[in-house]
Design a protein around this nucleic acid. Structure first.
Lengths: 195, 195
DNA sequence: CGCGTTAATTATCTTTTGCTAATTTCCGGG
DNA sequence: CCCGGAAATTAGCAAAAGATAATTAACGCG
């Protein structure tokens, strides 16, 4: 794919942007490939990374004192990924961002693109729109913890996102839902038994 | 307090804005008082309400099929309150927003102020800044559900926000933490016993 | 294709939570 | 100041979840 093809693709994807708008950012973007298991952002890193995932899946996790990994976020195709600790608070990331599959993404440095976005009304509007999407998803996730039981959260997940189960091992799904792998296994058994 | 005093106050509060910027929004704002128990946004309402709380505390809750109230959010002085369902998705609010105390707030209609903010770079930048704050708080709350036990969530709450306990009954604190009032009571007992 | 590692399930036991109801405490209006 | 209703705690029991370990299944690499 040529870069002009790609720009046309993003103009189509982000309605409201001109080819020039996209090009401004595209120039500063780097296409990156990650192999399954590769770390995209290391815990402790201070870089203000921002990425748009073209292909693949990235898991964000926290590591406990005894070395357990707890999955905080799962992001895949067409979704943005951001090192929020660094972007919002200029602090080192408390989390590790790791590819679960071979992954292709557009890698950006938010510190570099921020002034460009700030000075371009259409890019600013797009950033605002995307931020609202992300905020909406976050609020949704909070609600699922407040309103639903672990079993209901799992059912919601497989309802809204059945494909993810084939891409992420259950042990990561479980911590993503705020429970242990053993507990998820029991929930799955309960569910299959009752249908 | 005169309105010019108030504008000076907001100029000081939102660094980066000029008195003119503040005035643009202030003109469209309405100072509203709510008595304890008053509903600010009714479940089902479609209005894109946005408020800055000057004094008081507002609880957002979901009502279950059997009439139980589950608290989703608690907001107080200097914080923004938004009917996200309506603002982001133009849908009726799934939640009720109710004052827990006599409350004073600046009431805004986001539909009315959006074009003004869009056309004013400083206001746009402030909106973006505030959105990032709200997103950061949301992500924090998600993390507390994924990483912490109910007891740890309660300890985190009283550590970060001890005053809230004197302003909100425990039955609302408990559902806010994703547990039942009875369970919170037991957690409180465990804690006092161990110190 | 087999071997070894990891994931998933199952088992056992302990702890915590939910549910329901009873009891006690708290609080505001008369 | 008292009284009634709501909140908070406590109690008792059932269900679910956590911790740990053992067993089985799945998977990737040579």
């Amino acid at each position: 794919m040529t870069s002009s093809d790609e720009i046309a693709y993003y103009v189509h994807l982000f309605k409201g942007l001109s080819p020039e708008d996209v090009t401004q950012l595209y120039t500063l973007a780097e296409t990156r490939t990650l192999k399954a298991g590769d770390v995209y952002i290391q815990k402790g890193a201070l870089s203000q990374k921002l990425a748009l995932i073209s292909q693949g899946l990235i898991r964000t996790y926290h590591t406990t004192d005894d070395g357990e990994e707890i999955t905080v976020s799962l992001r895949w195709e067409q979704q943005f990924l951001a090192s929020f600790d660094s972007i919002i608070h200029q602090k080192p990331s408390r989390f590790t961002y790791e590819a679960m599959e071979d992954t292709l993404l557009m890698d950006l440095d938010y510190a570099a693109i921020q002034p460009i976005i700030d000075n371009n009304p259409r890019l600013s509007a797009m950033r605002h729109h995307l931020l609202m999407q992300i905020l909406s998803q976050s609020i949704d996730r909070i609600e699922s913890f407040v309103l639903l039981s672990p079993e209901e959260r799992y059912l919601k997940l497989i309802h809204e996102n059945p494909l993810i189960l084939n891409r992420v091992p259950n042990k990561h799904i479980s911590t993503f839902l705020g429970i242990t792998p053993v507990s998820l296994s029991r929930i799955r058994k309960r569910i299959t038994r009752s249908r």
